[in-house]
C-alpha cells in the first residue's frame, strides 16, 4: 500500500503522527512529511486509523 497526502487539504493537525509517528511527521515548518510512503502490511491498521482520524480527510491509501 502507498500513503497519499492531499497537500491542499492537510492542515498539519498531527493526528496521524499521534497514531503512527514512524510514518507521519509534522516538521518544524509545520508541513507534513510522509516518512514511509510504502509502509508494511502489518501497519495497515494504524495507517487506516490515521486516514479515518484525519480531521481534514487529507490522507488516503493507494493499493500498489
Amino acid at each position: 500500500m502507498r500513503v497519499v497526502v492531499d497537500k491542499t487539504k492537510c492542515a498539519s493537525i498531527g493526528m496521524c503522527e499521534a497514531v503512527a509517528p514512524d510514518i507521519f511527521e509534522i516538521g518544524a515548518n509545520g508541513a507534513l512529511t510522509i516518512l514511509q510512503e510504502n509502509p508494511s502490511q502489518e501497519r495497515r491498521d494504524d495507517v487506516e486509523m490515521a486516514c479515518t482520524d484525519c480531521p481534514t480527510q487529507a490522507l488516503s491509501i493507494e493499493e500498489n
Partner: peptide, 15 residues
C-alpha cells in the same frame, strides 16, 4: 488562516 496556523502547528506536534 493556513499561513498562521501552520506556524503554530510545529509547537503542538505529538513529538
Amino acid at each position: 488562516h493556513t499561513k498562521i496556523r501552520r506556524l503554530l502547528t510545529a509547537a503542538f506536534t505529538p513529538k
